[in-house]
Design a protein around this nucleic acid. Structure first.
Lengths: 182, 182
DNA sequence: GTCCGCATGTAAGGCGTTACATGATTAA
DNA sequence: TTAATCATGTAACGCCTTACATGCGGAC
């Protein structure tokens, strides 16, 4: 009787990490504190409830690694269903909405693709990623062309920053594509 | 008797827009729907409660622009206290934590600086922004140098993306600086 | 034997999300 | 007159934040 969750960004990060190797909640906190994945909370009030939810959903399984004294340590590992969900989630097509609202989620998806989805899915992702950005950049430039003259200096520069960010990401995807295909 | 809020990103966006000219909630929704500021919700369930909170905090004031039939339209304008708060908020120094966790908030701060803070504050912001990024990039590169060999391909590429993003932002800030000082 | 790091959790609060609800005005 | 758009709001829900609480283990 699992409920239907859609993965929050944090849950995806947790599930992706656990899919690489079994981890405890504390391990996860360490990762989030000490690596550039650190866009995430690392706070117990976020990690432990998330772990509980993911377990209730049936995507991970906990095994109490009690030192023989009974010191509780919950070691989580991914289940078959979790593996399947992860695979499906990472194989989703890249939409325009993803580009606009969930760029971080997209990068996270990509970061976990090794060993979960095949090379074709990875390549497809990068292609879609780049072309969806291109499409959005066209929209932005159209808007920008009109607004440029009436925007104040800082407003204009901030807009340029956004545009350049997108362009950089598209370039990155194309370079990544070349590297992967070598 | 205003409560103490710290501006959420959405509230900052709202306050910044209203500071430029009086707006209704619906106007705000339109802006968020139709401009690249659209990283924000535009949903009534976000805008209207936020407006209420900001008004309760004493930073904006509403005037009912009833068409003579009494059709309710709340037109909000910024108060003196709101103006002061905005000025102070935009003048805050740029911290390392801002760079890591609140990049979007930083860009938003910058986007609204025209007419609110002077040129010196704007220039200071950009300088701090660039140098805090530089500092963080050094950290990331140190981490990256160690991790590169053990990271799987996609993980490595995702990290590179993060790094390039930061580097691009620092470059942007330096270009912006030059433009502003001309 | 005391302090610090390991390790897990709970409680209150804030705020954004989706979905729903309501009514006025304008254009076809 | 019917539909679309203007315009404002509420309710349920999810999830993150901050702060607090608890206990084991090892090092000195």
């Amino acid at each position: 009787m699992e409920k239907k969750y859609d993965l929050s960004t944090l849950s995806l990060a947790i599930l992706g990490l656990i899919s690489q190797r079994p981890l405890t909640g504390y391990d996860l906190r360490k990762v989030f504190r000490t690596t550039p994945l650190g866009h995430f909370s690392s706070s117990p009030g976020a990690i432990y409830p998330a772990l509980k939810r993911i377990e209730e959903a049936g995507w991970i399984r906990s095994a109490t690694t009690g030192g023989r004294t009974g010191h509780q340590r919950m070691l989580y590992q991914i289940t078959a269903r979790g593996q399947k969900l992860l695979q499906e989630h990472l194989s989703q097509p890249v939409t325009q909405e993803d580009i606009i609202w969930h760029m971080d989620g997209l990068m996270l998806r990509f970061a976990f693709m090794d060993g979960i989805v095949g090379r074709e899915a990875t390549v497809r992702f990068l292609r879609e990623f780049a072309s969806q950005i291109d499409a959005h950049v066209v929209d932005l430039q159209r808007y920008f062309a009109e607004a440029k003259s009436i925007l104040p200096p800082c407003g204009r520069l901030a807009m340029e920053n956004g545009l350049q960010n997108y362009e950089m990401n598209a370039q990155w995807a194309r370079r990544a594509l070349q590297e992967l295909q070598r």
